[in-house]
Write a protein that binds this DNA or RNA. Structure first.
Lengths: 225, 225
DNA sequence: GATGTGTCTTTTGCCTACAGTCCACGGCGC
DNA sequence: GCGCCGTGGACTGTAGGCAAAAGACACATC
């Protein structure tokens, strides 16, 4: 166990490495897009972004490529990158897929969940409810994301998790205005879901998760009017 | 209808545009990977590939980035790209997701399908059976892909289609040896599936598609022994 | 003989530079 | 005045080049 140095485990502060520049650019741009700082349809000029971020065009290009494969930007050949414009139809389809993935995750979680995992879920749920009670909207949204992530983790399917993470992030982008509104009801549904998982009731877990995400869809369409 | 030029429709050979170089490199590499010309775990050196393809390193880099987002290669920082090594667990998870996506597609197709679409499906099915009868394995595999693609098209969910296409391609990579074996049974299942879609029976279509892809999983595991 | 160290090579990460392409604007003919 | 063509600017696509990091190997040391 490398005892030769005699240094305690945490003595070396791990020498924080900034990581590849392209990844940081990617995250920066994604942040700018999701926060609406870069608006849908906007033309993203490589040299501009590069100058603004203090890097060269190359990392920016690579970040844009990646963003385009995940449909955050549309990359028209010889014309550049444009922030993707959400469509009504697309939002709907995306939500359908999300429902599908989350429901399957719930089913798998119900099939595999152990006692300690369920305790963790309930803790997350409690914290979420506390955030709602305190009118901490950002906190509630964050806890919601963590709860869903935990369920996905319990499902134990990494491929599914990766897909769901991507879809989820985009859904959140489309539905940010909506997500903030439905605080209260969402968490009572979460309780039911955890109960179903605890009971190992796969069918009920699936059904609840389906209904849960479908509610989001309804709220979106009601808001349209 | 633009009669000013007086040229017949097909006179201009569409001015074949090669398209961005990175895309062609991407497709070339993907082809090399799926055909096992580049073996799993192999270290892909940018300058080598660039020289071999007759282009500079930049398009190769961009292609590799894209391949890495789709998990065809693993991109270790400061170390380069390595062809992804399939795992037993991963193959299983991937197939689970595929089952999920295809089953949903079948359900949606059953919900939306029109008469003319069903005719198209049956034609594809007939052609597939003919290929099997003629021992045309490659043809049968191709028709299989087209049939599934058609069903996905009928589902009318582009987001779902895109995801399924990616998952499918990787599944095919993992399961190529298997796919060639199960010719006959596969097509009788297809017939049943079309029947269910024709009858607008969403539940039956889902169930059949589930069973259909699950059979693939079984064959894979039997082959292991 | 085993271990640690220094150097050397290879390969990536990033930057800069040049060529090709598309769009917009203005002039020209009708 | 209206439409078409040519020209200019801006941006992307691609290439080449340099510095830094990671791995390999030989050598010195214990």
């Amino acid at each position: 166990m490398l005892p030769t140095t005699g240094l305690p485990q945490g003595a070396v502060p791990k020498l924080e490495r900034p990581g590849p520049l392209r990844d940081r650019v990617y995250e920066a741009l994604l942040e700018l897009i999701t926060t609406r700082a870069l608006q849908p349809g906007q033309h993203l000029v490589e040299s501009e972004l590069a100058g603004h971020l203090g890097v060269s065009r190359q990392p920016v290009r690579e970040a844009l490529q990646r963003l385009s494969t995940e449909n955050w930007v549309d990359l028209r050949p010889a014309q550049g990158a444009f922030v993707h414009e959400p469509t009504e139809a697309e939002a709907d389809q995306l939500l359908t897929v999300r429902t599908l993935l989350e429901a399957e995750a719930a089913r798998l979680a119900a099939a595999h969940a152990r006692a300690e995992a369920i305790i963790a879920l309930e803790e997350l749920c409690t914290e979420g409810e506390r955030a709602v009670a305190a009118d901490d909207v950002d906190g509630a949204v964050a806890m919601n994301a963590r709860l869903h992530a935990k369920i996905m983790e319990l499902a134990g399917n990494e491929v599914l998790a990766e897909l769901a993470a991507r879809v989820d992030r985009r859904v959140r982008w489309y539905y940010t205005p909506v997500a903030r509104q439905r605080g209260q009801q969402s968490w009572t549904e979460h309780r039911e879901l955890i109960a179903a998982i605890t009971a190992r009731d796969e069918r009920r877990a699936t059904a609840i998760m389906r209904a849960h995400t479908e509610h989001t869809r309804k709220m979106y369409h009601e808001r349209e009017k």
